[in-house]
Design a protein around this nucleic acid. Structure first.
Ligand SMILES: [Zn+2]
Ligand SMILES: [Zn+2]
Ligand SMILES: [Zn+2]
Ligand SMILES: [Zn+2]
Lengths: 134, 134
DNA sequence: CTGCACCCTGTAGTCGCTACAGGGTCAAGA
DNA sequence: TCTTGACCCTGTAGCGACTACAGGGTGCAG
């Protein structure tokens, strides 16, 4: 037969079992029918939906945005402006994070480059954390 | 007099009041003496320590690493190898995050570049989230 | 003396999981 | 047939680093 246990679904999508149950609680994944023994019995639609969620998570979308994307994906004939807006917001967020991290990287590299592996008293890293150079 | 209220300290360091109390609970900032009315009364040492914590946080160090850095900073005559190791670990972590985010950015940009602002059914963004192209 | 800004403690919520505890189910092997 | 072990169930608590109250106390200016 064609239903999947939660463990099967986890293996096929790469999403941990606990996370699948969490998505169900959060309303991202519909509650599947149950077997006689009260096991979740998933079908292909669930697998597709979970794969969609996983790809969205891999791009950094938050669960609220994913809920919105899933809703939008159902309205095939509507324009995709809202989808684009969510993607642009996400891109902006990613770019902001990259900018922050790039500044951190530059400062960490510079600190490490100036450190003479001396005593703590002379260490450039500690010196800058203390505020010697900004 | 030379003591600072928690609000003064917050203004001078840019660290919110709630966060200062949180750092105290977490053992990063020593408990300051109190006034008669039970207000925290900070001195210059607290301000320096909090500034150190803030600069470390701005570089992305976690609170455990900052605790270690603060301890190491007190041993002026010891070699700074452990400090360097913490900084290198942090640099590696930052570089890992940049790599992840850069991949997300590339995919988001590519999705957005292919989107023709059509219907949801034709939208490249939705298509890829569904798994059309990996 | 009254209002208001500030301070106090303690607790709960955020986000997206992750890790149990304490049980139930089910198929395969001895 | 019995038992082992892998899997599944619910419910709750923990993570990191805050953030946001609720419900009160303090202190100063008008
Ligand atoms: Zn330099
Ligand atoms: Zn050094
Ligand atoms: Zn392309
Ligand atoms: Zn589109």
């Amino acid at each position: 037969m064609s239903t999947l246990s939660i463990g099967d679904l986890a293996r096929r999508t790469g999403v941990p079992v606990e996370t699948i149950r969490y998505y169900e609680r959060m309303g991202l994944l519909p509650k599947p029918p149950r077997t006689e023994g009260n096991y979740r019995a998933y079908e292909a639609t669930h697998e597709r939906r979970l794969a969609f969620i996983k790809r969205s998570r891999d791009l950094g979308f938050g669960l609220d945005a994913i809920r919105a994307l899933l809703d939008l994906a159902d309205g095939a004939d509507r324009p995709c402006g809202e989808v684009d807006a969510l993607a642009r917001d996400q891109l902006a967020e990613v770019e902001r994070k990259i900018a922050d991290l790039t500044a951190m990287r530059a400062e960490l590299q510079d600190m490490l480059g100036h450190c003479r592996n001396d005593t703590v008293a002379d260490c450039e890293i500690i010196g800058r954390l203390r505020g010697a150079v900004e």
